[in-house]
């Protein structure tokens, strides 16, 4: 059974048809990429999956259950985690605290437990902190744990966001342009990281403009153009696909 399945998903903003009849599935253990020119509707598609807004039409199944129209926090606690194209960290919180928020859906202390600081809360809080530190270590930024997250360098902020998403222990991770704004070393690091977490059993769906990254690590690629899916294939075949070359790579060349 597919882990994530989109069937005839549409999203309209007024007259703009940002996502137009997109269907595809993500199998467990895959790294799948969504590519397409600027404005193709990639981020909008992610937002429909993660529940930021519901699709105008169509359905989204996660683990066999329909999730379209559910609130984002419900989708998150079912095991779907994400990062944002334009980094969204919490200002005023340290890097570690940002990652600790990632463990929110894996912990439960409520208002009363928090106010009374019950022994069980105390234990849970320690567990949250320890696990979050592990994810900072995985990302190689444990030394920045106590720095204010939004004052870090751009690449470090991306790493904090990555750690935050992983701390939720998702089964499916949505990454919206994880390498945007990173230099080639950092990009290589991101590629290595994505394959590492896939090997740990996390399925990855990513949007990325860096073609070498996408071609290197993806098992399958979906190509969007003006909201429509124009191809879905292996990296090798996508590179041979004449329509993709014309629509996607052609426009890319024109932009250069």
């Amino acid at each position: 059974m597919a882990l994530l399945e989109l069937t005839h998903v549409h999203k309209r903003f007024g007259g703009l048809h940002a996502v137009n009849d997109v269907s595809f599935a993500v199998q467990p253990g895959q790294i799948k990429a969504v590519i397409g020119p600027n404005g193709a509707g990639k981020t909008t598609l992610f937002n429909c999956i993660a529940g930021t807004f519901p699709p105008s039409e169509g359905s989204v199944h996660f683990n066999g259950q329909p999730i379209e129209g559910l609130e984002p926090h419900r989708i998150a606690s079912r095991g779907l985690s994400r990062t944002f194209q334009n980094i969204k960290l919490y200002p005023g919180l340290t890097a570690l605290e940002n990652v600790m928020i990632g463990r929110h859906c894996r912990s439960r202390a409520g208002f009363w437990a928090g106010m009374l600081r019950l022994p069980s809360t105390f234990r849970e809080e320690r567990e949250i902190r320890e696990r979050s530190l592990e994810y900072l270590e995985l990302l190689g930024i444990a030394d920045l744990a106590d720095s204010e997250a939004t004052s870090l360098a751009f690449g470090q902020q991306r790493a904090v966001e990555f750690a935050r998403a992983l701390a939720a222990e998702p089964t499916l991770l949505l990454l919206d342009e994880p390498a945007a704004g990173l230099n080639i070393y950092e990009t290589a690091e991101v590629a290595r990281l994505i394959t590492t977490i896939r090997d740990r059993g996390i399925t990855v769906l990513l949007v990325e403009h860096d073609m070498s990254l996408v071609m290197d690590i993806s098992d399958e690629i979906v190509v969007l153009s003006f909201g429509q899916k124009i191809a879905e294939d292996t990296p090798h075949n996508i590179q041979q696909n004449t329509e993709v070359i014309r629509i996607y790579l052609g426009e890319d060349d024109a932009a250069d």
């Binding site: 998150a76 960290l89 919490y90 200002p91 919180l93």
Partner: peptide, 11 residues
Amino acid sequence: GSEEAARAMGV
């Protein structure tokens, strides 16, 4: 800090 990011993390 960011209501959208809080919701996305299950808050």
